[in-house]
Design a protein around this nucleic acid. Structure first.
Length: 129
DNA sequence: ACAATGACGACTC
DNA sequence: GGAGTCGCCATTG
């Protein structure tokens, strides 16, 4: 059921984007930012939300990530919560997929948590200015 | 149209 | 310092 929903989201997003990016504008920005996250680095929902102007609405970033699953170019695995925890790993194809991907990028993950999160943290507002 | 939910965050107890 | 509560914004029921 959830998969079907994701598909619907993706299709809906695809339709909305080229038509008149107003509802998906937020999503588009999120995708762009996440896509710009360097390899071996991670970011947080709050940081992205802040960069987009809605710093208080990290939830929406998470929701955008859900839709981002349809976009393979969007490394959602590099986006974790402000605590550095892989809060969204359960939403991947497999719960271990996120951790595997992160480890693949030299990011240490232990107990669903990114090690040295502060060092790996990539702040869009800071890097992209 | 109203109420509830959510890959979060910050504040309060 | 750990746990609980409220707030935010958009989507879904």
């Amino acid at each position: 059921m959830a998969a079907k929903k994701t598909k619907e989201i993706k299709e809906n997003l695809k339709q909305v984007l080229p038509s008149g990016a107003r509802d998906a504008s937020f999503f588009e920005q999120v995708f762009d930012v996440v896509r710009l996250i360097p390899k071996g680095r991670v970011s947080s929902y709050g940081a992205i939300a802040f960069f987009l102007g809605t710093k208080m609405s990290a939830r929406m970033v998470g929701w955008a990530m859900n839709a981002a699953h349809g976009m393979k170019d969007v490394p959602a695995h590099r986006v974790v919560n402000r605590n550095g925890m892989l809060s969204g790993k359960m939403h991947f194809a497999t719960p271990t997929r996120m951790e595997e991907l992160l480890k693949k990028e030299k990011i240490k993950v232990e107990n669903d948590q990114v090690i040295d999160f502060e060092k790996k943290f990539w702040d869009p507002a800071k890097e992209l200015s």
